[in-house]
């Protein structure tokens, strides 16, 4: 019997979400841990999406189920979920992974409810145990507690993972094996839920998740002015500025796309420099995989120093100004 590991290939306007490739990479890793034959498949829905199949294959999808229809152009759970649910019922995969993106966080549990199976949400680790079951580690209490979740008796064993948790692997050119789904009968017309449009705007500058160096402000930065200083520093070294939730709540930073933490982004830059960070687990969980971690805080007893490689006990305003003077 062949073990089947599936990944939902999330695309918007013909662009794959990065989490899809990260999940395919992880799927390859899991496949290696399962005994016997395995097959990795991607499920791709949308309009004119065939062009994405090469990329999916290159990152590990041996089989790609494609539902291509004008009706699937915009994501709609009332169209997407039944297509996926029917396919799962026919093919009976063992494991099914979704990105814990806005779309995946709705679609995953919707499909699971239709199949009456379980989803481990926002996993930070996935492994195969001695019984060949998927074990998912999920954070709770803002990341303070990690719990293992199993789906022993139902299939598929589902899990969702935020972008940036797993690392995208190397590409290996492979011919995609495409299975076309019959979606000719799909009709958006007449459904009680209608998707009207999607608007996406890529933020300016180096995207936070791609930056090699991140300057991060915590509540201690105290002002928009200091946030601007972090952005200036970041711009000078080709990095990005980030923040904790309170900084976003205060309106000092531009919004959620720069927030790092359990309920925000997960980043792993080569260097992370934090200013006025308290060290709350919620935030730390979002940057714990960073290379070098430096923190500036005037309170020498601040817990943030325990989770830092290097600590500077000093007024962050002074350190920021000195950095701005020094870094050109």
């Amino acid at each position: 019997m062949t073990h089947k590991i599936w990944v939902f290939a999330e695309q918007v306007n013909g662009v794959l979400d990065r989490v899809t490739l990260e999940l395919l990479t992880k799927a390859k890793d899991l496949a290696g841990k399962l005994e016997g034959k395995t097959e990795i498949a991607a499920v791709l829905l949308g309009k004119n999406v065939k062009g994405l199949c090469d990329t999916l294959a290159d990152y590990g999808a041996e089989v790609i189920y494609v539902g291509d229809s004008a009706e699937l152009d915009l994501y709609n759970p009332m169209l997407y979920a039944p297509v996926i649910t029917n396919l799962v019922k026919e093919e009976d995969p063992d494991i099914f992974l979704f990105g814990a993106t806005a779309i995946g966080s709705e679609l995953g549990p919707t499909v699971a409810a239709q199949l009456k199976t379980g989803v481990a949400a926002h996993c930070v680790e996935l492994r195969i145990n001695e019984n060949g079951l998927l074990v998912s580690s999920v954070p709770s209490f803002g990341g303070k507690i990690l719990g293992e979740i199993l789906v022993p008796d139902n299939r598929p064993q589902m899990a969702s993972v935020k972008p940036g948790i797993f690392v995208q692997g190397e590409k290996e050119t492979r011919e995609p094996s495409i299975h076309w789904l019959d979606v000719t009968d799909l009709k958006a017309e007449g459904l009680p839920l209608k998707a009207l449009r999607i608007d996406k705007k890529e933020p300016k500058g180096v995207p936070l998740e791609k930056a090699e160096i991140v300057f991060c402000g915590g509540y201690g930065i105290g002002s928009k002015e200091n946030w601007a200083k972090l952005e200036t520093l970041a711009a000078r070294v080709g990095g990005a500025a980030a923040c904790t939730r309170p900084v976003m709540d205060e309106g000092w930073s531009p919004g959620e796309h720069v927030m790092v933490g359990t309920s925000g982004k997960s980043i792993r830059p080569k260097v992370y420099i934090g200013f006025g960070i308290s060290g709350a687990t919620h935030h730390i969980c979002g940057m714990k995989d960073s290379g070098l971690v430096i923190n500036v805080n005037r309170d020498e007893h601040c817990p943030v120093f325990e989770v830092s490689d290097i600590g500077i006990v000093e007024d962050l305003n002074k350190v920021l100004d000195q950095l701005l003077m020094t870094i050109q």
């Binding site: 719990g147 293992e148 969980c285 714990k288 325990e306 989770v307 500077i312």
Partner: peptide, 25 residues
């Protein structure tokens, strides 16, 4: 409940925590 809870643990996030000394510069 199709999901069952396994082990729980607290993540170890500790790093070496070297505190720098000297002047600001």
């Amino acid at each position: 409940s199709p999901t069952k809870a396994g082990e729980i643990f607290t993540p170890d996030l500790k790093r070496k925590g070297e505190i720098l000394t000297g002047t600001l510069e």
